[in-house]
């Protein structure tokens, strides 16, 4: 019986969670349930990042994809009542063959990379994991200070813009 490392075991488990929930996202008929499984799938991807010792990326994945994007979609769903309860068929009757070449193509590329490297791990897993958050923080406030500050102005502008576009203007409203 081949021995496997804890890392490989964890990867297998996480991959099962990602793939399983992704399949459910694509097949379930209740869109709200799809969304919940989408969040689970995102969580699995965060786990993969952790295994690759990309701790910052994992945290961002949880914060942005689960904390922001999925929740935003849930809000959008809850505001459109009918969609919540209706069953929607997800099977495409005419185009079901179209994704096949794309999937096969991606598989071919990945398989080629795998063969080329003789089945060796592409990422150096023996290396000691260095927490990346601190390094990224330092880079943001030194070399990348200007883009970082510019991004903060961009966020301000985006907020102002979003409020302006979304706000309902009443006739006697001072603005």
């Amino acid at each position: 019986m081949p021995t496997i490392t804890l890392q490989q075991f964890m990867f297998g488990a996480i991959a099962l969670v990602i793939l399983g929930s992704a399949i459910l996202v694509a097949t379930l008929r209740n869109i709200f349930h799809c969304l919940l499984f989408l969040a689970l799938s995102f969580l699995g991807v965060a786990g993969v990042y952790l295994l690759l010792s990309a701790d910052f990326l994992a945290a961002v994945q949880v914060l942005v994809y689960i904390g922001a994007i999925t929740v935003l979609m849930m809000f959008a769903l809850m505001m459109t009542h009918r969609v919540m309860t209706t069953d929607i068929s997800q099977s495409l009757t005419q185009w079901w063959l179209a994704p096949l070449p794309i999937a096969l193509g991606i598989f071919a590329v990945l398989f080629r990379v795998y063969v080329r490297h003789g089945g060796q791990a592409l990422v150096d897993t023996k290396h000691h994991a260095v927490p990346t958050t601190g390094i990224i923080g330092q880079a943001l406030l030194t070399r990348y200070m200007l883009p970082f500050e510019l991004a903060s102005i961009l966020l301000l502008v985006a907020m102002v813009g979003a409020i302006i576009l979304a706000k309902e203007d009443k006739s006697d409203d001072p603005a």
Binding site: L150, A151, L154, V157, G161, A162, I164
Partner: peptide, 12 residues
């Protein structure tokens, strides 16, 4: 970043 900044502001 500045290209997207310009674009996002322009969309609004």
């Amino acid at each position: 970043l500045s290209l997207e900044f310009l674009s996002i502001t322009s969309y609004v």
